[in-house]
Amino acid sequence: MKLSDVQRRLQAPFSAHLVGWKPTAFTKDRSRALLLAYVDARAVQDRLDAVCPDGWSFEIEVIAGASMPTVKGRLTVLGVTREDIGEGGEGTGSLNGGGTLKAAASDALKRCAVQFGVGRYLYDLPKTWAEWNDAKREPAQTPELPEWARPDFERSPGGAHIVQAMDQLRYEIPVDLDLQREVYRHLKAALQSLEPESGRAA
């Protein structure tokens, strides 16, 4: 397998529920925020695992003397390597505390992955002003992604909800076999309702 064989799968849009929104600016009363779309490092890792589970690796090197925790990341996918810098953000903790070095490593992974096309389309999304819930530190309502920024299966009514349920089942699969079969029957029926069979003989 070569990188060119999996490029389209790496570049594919993420499910909408995996896309988060972080503020880059606020109004004076913090009732509205200018939001930027992003995915977290776990989603990037899951994408790499899904496309080439045994074909990628990631290494970091701590950069000493930086004003904030900073690392150089090196991501190798199917023999091709890309490097980029990750920063831990503003923080008062040391490199060994506060989780800031971990944040730098996550930032580096995402920046390296973008060079392979993972999540690169998010840079094409316009920044969006939206109502902001400052108490919860999140948008009052999640912005809607345009059609082109969603995977094909989510462009059908109900598709996003089914995919979210399937993702959740990966981590919370029922132990009881009869319950597993019941979940399977419901998912199968839901998927068939999204893409009804055509051309069936009357």
Rank of each mutant, 00 (worst) to 15 (best):
L78Y: 01
Q192D: 14
L169F: 09
S4C: 06
A66Y: 04
A202H: 11
P13M: 00
Q45A: 07
G73Y: 02
L187A: 13
Y184Q: 14
A140I: 03
E90T: 14
S106P: 04
A103G: 10
P126S: 13
E182S: 15
K28D: 13
A202F: 08
W132E: 06
L125P: 02
R200C: 13
A37D: 01
E131S: 13
R200L: 14
P143I: 06
F14T: 09
P23R: 07
G159P: 10
G65F: 09
E61W: 05
A140H: 03
R185Q: 11
V183H: 10
I162T: 04
A189C: 04
D152Q: 13
K110E: 08
L18R: 14
R170Q: 15
P151M: 03
P196W: 01
K188Y: 08
A33M: 00
F58S: 01
A140R: 07
P139G: 08
K28L: 11
S198Y: 11
K136N: 11
R9W: 07
W148G: 00
T70M: 11
L78V: 01
A33P: 01
E147A: 15
W132S: 07
T27M: 07
V175S: 14
L101V: 09
L34D: 03
T70F: 08
E182H: 14
R42Q: 11
K102I: 10
P13I: 04
K72I: 04
E144S: 14
F26E: 06
H17D: 12
G93K: 03
D134H: 12
D54W: 06
W129N: 07
E172A: 14
V114W: 01
R181K: 12
L179W: 04
A50Q: 07
E83L: 07
L36H: 09
G88M: 05
Y121G: 04
Y184N: 15
V44G: 04
I85F: 05
Q45P: 05
A113D: 01
V163R: 11
Y171W: 12
V163F: 04
L78E: 01
P53N: 10
D40T: 04
G89E: 03
T92S: 15
G65E: 12
S193V: 12
M1D: 11
V114L: 13
V183T: 09
P69H: 05
P174R: 06
V71I: 03
F153E: 14
A130G: 06
S156M: 15
V19P: 10
G159T: 13
T76P: 01
S193L: 09
A189V: 05
D178F: 10
W148N: 02
V62S: 03
F58Y: 08
P139L: 07
N96I: 12
T128D: 04
